[in-house]
Amino acid sequence: MSLTSLAHLNDVPAGEWDALVPAGQPFLQHAFLSTLEESGSLGPLSGWRPHHLLWRENGRCLAAMPGYRKKNSSGEYVFDHGWAEACHRAGIQYYPKWLGAVPFSPVTGSRVLGAETASAKLLDALPDYLAEQGWSGAHVNFTDAKAGSLLSARPDWLHRLGCQYHWHNRGYRDFQDFMDALSSRKRKQMRKEREAVAAQGIDFSWLEGGLVSEAQWDFIYTCYANTYEVRGQSPYLTRDFFSLLAQRMPDAIRVVLASRQNRPVAMAFSLVSDDTFYGRYWGCLAEFDRLHFETCFYQGIEYAITHGLSRFDAGAQGEHKLIRGFEPVLTDSWHYLRHPGLRTAVAEFLNEERDAVRAWAEEARKALPYRQE
């Protein structure tokens, strides 16, 4: 029995890895994670170095955790920059650290893959492994119920709450049926936003990954990169990521193109599972009134209704999603910190933060547009 690590996901066969991944989780599939690596989206310059953990018995891989050696806190969406800064002031090493997560995607899912018994053994071996590596600790972001149960049973792991905004399909027949569930004032506001986009002569078309041409991927990447460049940042993903993923997971990819006078002006890139629509990346090459809301939210809601998907996960942050029907959803992450003083200080902070997050989520529900029964 042993805990081992992988610097390249391709060092384990895709079938062996995917056999541990629960159904309906495209972001954890070998094809998605290996594409991040092979496309050059991860590596020393990004601060993300693949360091996946495996638990093997008698040569068989029984449990795994997708993970990364981090030298910064970029692209995680569970913000610990303040912890790192406090460590720097106190002369405590915070980087490198180990992170169990999906790079650049704040999507909840399985983080401890495999049978529960083997998963527990992997987690029990992790503290000694971190000490051997000389890392400050481990962080596991956006966990599902299984990982939460395993980690909550280990008292040295600290629990952190977050809040996202997801849309839920309550059996709507079409977009108008969804609109009818809103209060009169919010329904009028939503209708005006959609009419404002249509009045600018913008229409929309949907493509699955296998039908997107390389020229269209060039446009999609230009839009994606532009959302970072306007903020003076470098994009996380490379151009090659999109083409490689389209080859490996074409059925999971959905792209909506916004066009004006037959020329594309904006896009939204998403993935789908059996029951969930995952909105990921958006970008535009020119500014149009209300185009962001239509492309990223209303088009996705309409797609989810048409195709019978039960949930629309539109990513992290964005209180503006509330008035468009996205409800507050609590998320979980877990943190193991080797330095006793740091662990104590962070534990006190998280106790207060959890209360504040719960209070915010409850308050945020008041902004939802739905009619009161």
Rank of each mutant, 00 (worst) to 15 (best):
G171A: 01
E195W: 04
H166F: 07
H166V: 02
S183Q: 14
F178M: 15
R173C: 06
R187Y: 06
R173F: 08
G171V: 12
K192E: 14
R154S: 14
M190K: 00
K188T: 02
L182F: 02
S149G: 14
Y165V: 11
S152L: 08
K192S: 13
A153R: 06
L151M: 04
Q164S: 00
D156S: 09
P155L: 11
E195H: 13
G162A: 09
L161T: 11
L182N: 05
E193M: 08
G171E: 03
R170K: 11
D174W: 13
R154T: 14
R187P: 03
S183T: 15
R191E: 12
M179F: 04
H168C: 15
R170I: 08
D174H: 08
L182G: 06
R191P: 02
H159G: 05
R160E: 00
S152C: 01
P155H: 05
E195Q: 15
L150F: 07
K192R: 15
R160K: 00
K188Q: 12
D177N: 02
R194Q: 12
P155A: 13
Q189Y: 08
E193A: 08
Q176T: 14
H166G: 13
G162W: 12
L182Y: 00
R185S: 12
K188P: 03
E195M: 11
L151G: 02
K186F: 03
S149T: 11
E193F: 07
S149P: 01
N169I: 10
M190G: 13
H168N: 13
L182I: 10
S152M: 04
D174N: 12
W167R: 10
D177F: 08
K186N: 04
K192C: 12
Y172K: 15
D156P: 09
F175M: 08
